[in-house]
């Protein structure tokens, strides 16, 4: 039982990380119908900046983190300002290809700037810190991950439901031209979406780096693991991204924990496949994802 609970706890923490990374995807997708393929590389740059700030420039972690967030927010905003702003009204596919370009540029810049060696990740916690409850070890970093995710989700919920900019973003997501006709500045909405998404994803990346202790230029691929999470939750659903993330995290950790007891023929890599299996299963039942919108139509 304790083993199971331990796995659930670890799975929830990992799920929260996927949720944060997934939120980045779905906020941008919701605002502009674009899947941002540069998401993983934004996260990569952010974690490298945080790691450098702590290890090379000896900043305290709590200063390094905002610095990393700031850098990715600025990259997100610049990209929106210099490239996407000229693309309003163009087919989403064009913009999608441009984000792949940005992805390649960012990854190259990281290799140029930091080299391709693995470097240690910045962490404010000792590996063993945390406490035990009923035989389950609750690690500090996992607890913080879960806490940060919950607080952030609550803040996002409030933002989307009860603020002017939140309303502007939701309206723009539903009908860009109607939003423009209401005088909503769609450019600001895009900028806001990119800034928010960059910051949230980077936060997810930094938490993931704490978990994996080290980072290298392939670290951005973590975003790909968050991908089944958002597809499963429904691409355009913010709460779907969170729930999808947690489901994926739980499945992958639970299978990893129990796969050694399965017959040898299954092998040891099953936990890497289960998230995708779950995704395919759910999509077969609900093609638009758990919380994705089928368009509302009156009957």
């Amino acid at each position: 039982m304790a083993y199971f609970l331990q796995l659930v706890f670890a799975g929830a923490a990992q799920g929260c990380i996927y949720a944060l990374i997934g939120l980045g995807f779905s906020i941008i997708f919701k605002a502009s119908q674009v899947i941002n393929f540069a998401q993983g590389e934004l996260l990569l740059v952010g974690t490298y900046v945080v790691a450098s700030a702590v290890l090379n420039w000896h900043l305290p972690f709590l200063l390094a983190l905002p610095l990393g967030l700031l850098v990715t927010i600025v990259i997100g905003l610049l990209f929106e300002r210099l490239v996407l702003r000229r693309m309003i009204g163009r087919p989403p596919f064009t913009i999608l290809m441009i984000t792949i370009g940005l992805d390649i540029i960012l990854r190259t810049l990281v290799i140029v700037g930091w080299g391709s060696r693995t470097i240690p990740a910045a962490t404010p916690f000792a590996v063993t810190s945390g406490f035990n409850v009923a035989g389950v070890h609750l690690g500090s970093s996992d607890l913080w991950t879960i806490g940060v995710t919950i607080v952030l989700c609550a803040a996002l919920y409030y933002f989307f439901r009860h603020t002017r900019y939140g309303l502007a973003m939701r309206a723009t997501a539903l009908d860009q031209e109607a939003a423009l006709a209401m005088g909503i500045d769609v450019r600001n909405v895009y900028a806001l979406a990119w800034g928010l998404a960059a910051a949230i994803t980077t936060l997810g990346g930094v938490l993931l780096a704490i978990d994996s202790l080290a980072i290298d230029p392939n670290f951005g691929n973590a975003a790909l693991v968050a991908f089944p999470a958002i597809i499963l939750g429904g691409l355009d659903s913010v709460s779907g991204a969170v729930i999808g993330g947690v489901i994926i995290g739980l499945t992958s950790v639970l299978t990893a924990g129990y796969e050694s007891r399965l017959p040898a023929v299954v092998g040891t890599g099953l936990h890497e496949v289960t998230p995708y299996l779950i995704m395919i299963l759910i999509l077969m039942i609900r093609p638009y994802g758990l919380f994705g919108s089928r368009k509302v139509e009156r009957i």
């Binding site: 309206a171 539903l174 009908d175 109607a178 909503i184």
Partner: peptide
Amino acid sequence: RIFDDLTVDENLHAGAI
């Protein structure tokens, strides 16, 4: 072209943005 996922009130407030 109303915002069909938003409530009536939210639609109106979007108009006053």
